[in-house]
Simulated assay, not measured.
Amino acid sequence: MQSQSQSQGAQPFLSAQGMRGGYGKADILMGCTLTVDKGQIAVIVGPNGAGKSTAMKAVFGMLPLREGRVTLGGEDITALSPQQRVRKGMGFVPQTHNIFPTMTVEENLEMGAFIRDDDVRQTMEQVYHLFPAVAEKRRQAAGELSGGQRQQVAVGRALMTRPQLLMLDEPTAGVSPIVMDELFDRIIEVARTGISILMVEQNARQALEIADIGYVLVQGANRYTDTGQALLADPEVRRTFLGG
């Protein structure tokens, strides 16, 4: 399902072109390119060590690029820090250490709104509406919640900044299949509000089922790029990356 703006040749909302970079002298990203349109769900999959999380960090400004550029809404943000990118409309949920365990759920959400100086209550109610299980535990310490609920708090906290692009690094890591399905349902709901989603996911088959666009990375470079459905139907992709 190509979105309208891409089919008409307009610039995608997020464009990360030709990213090359890594840690120390070693490049992990080898010219990787990612684009996401408004309200699109883009999923990055691939084998371990392919550079999936590194690509996310590069988009968010946590990894300096040796080559390439990142634009958001047509504006070049390649030189901006992660904090500056949050102010431009990026929200990032890392795989681990993504909540304050000793703070209550509500305090976690309030911390998410740190860049805002307006009334955040409406956004908080939207988060509670999206995650009813979290709403019930708003007075509880976030560290006491189940793994799936902690992930919901982490996503909710990122939504408190009212991002235009929400980036999720393996949001379903370590959760049960039922919780994974529920999280994916919520991610679809978020995208329907017009927020763009870029996520790295180990559960490749399930993630591609909800993806508008999928990127298969191998050794820091794009191996396959297509709609989620097309990648799922590709015999080569299935044999090599999806276990048949």
Rank of each mutant, 00 (worst) to 15 (best):
V127Y: 14
R150I: 08
E144Q: 12
M167K: 02
P163Y: 07
V153Q: 00
A158M: 04
T104P: 02
Q126H: 15
G112F: 07
D119F: 03
T104R: 07
S146R: 14
M124A: 08
D118V: 12
M124E: 12
M103N: 07
G156R: 05
L165N: 06
P132H: 14
D118Q: 14
R162G: 07
M160L: 05
S146G: 08
E125M: 10
L168E: 06
I115D: 01
R150L: 01
L109W: 12
R139N: 10
Q152C: 03
E144M: 12
K137S: 09
G147C: 06
G112P: 03
P163D: 03
K137I: 06
T123R: 15
E107A: 13
D119L: 01
G156P: 00
E107V: 04
D169H: 02
A133V: 15
R139L: 06
M124W: 06
R157A: 06
G143K: 13
A158D: 08
L168S: 04
M103I: 05
A133T: 15
L168F: 11
R150M: 13
R157L: 11
L109E: 05
L165G: 00
F131I: 06
V134A: 01
T102N: 14
Q151W: 03
L145Q: 14
L165Y: 14
H129I: 02
G148V: 09
A135N: 02
E110N: 14
V153T: 07
A158E: 00
R138P: 00
H129Q: 15
D119A: 01
P132G: 05
D117I: 08
Q122E: 15
R139W: 06
V127M: 12
A133C: 03
R116V: 12
M160T: 04
M111Y: 14
G143Q: 07
L159C: 11
G143A: 09
A135M: 00
E170D: 02
R162I: 03
Q164F: 00
V134N: 11
I115C: 10
N108G: 13
V120K: 09
V120G: 00
Y128P: 02
E136G: 02
V105F: 06
E125L: 10
P132Y: 11
A141W: 05
T102L: 05
L165Q: 06
M124F: 07
T123F: 13
V153C: 00
M124N: 01
M167L: 09
P163E: 05
L159K: 11
T161F: 05
D169C: 05
D118T: 15
T123V: 15
V153S: 02
V155A: 00
R157D: 07
A142G: 03
L165P: 03
P163S: 04
Q122G: 13
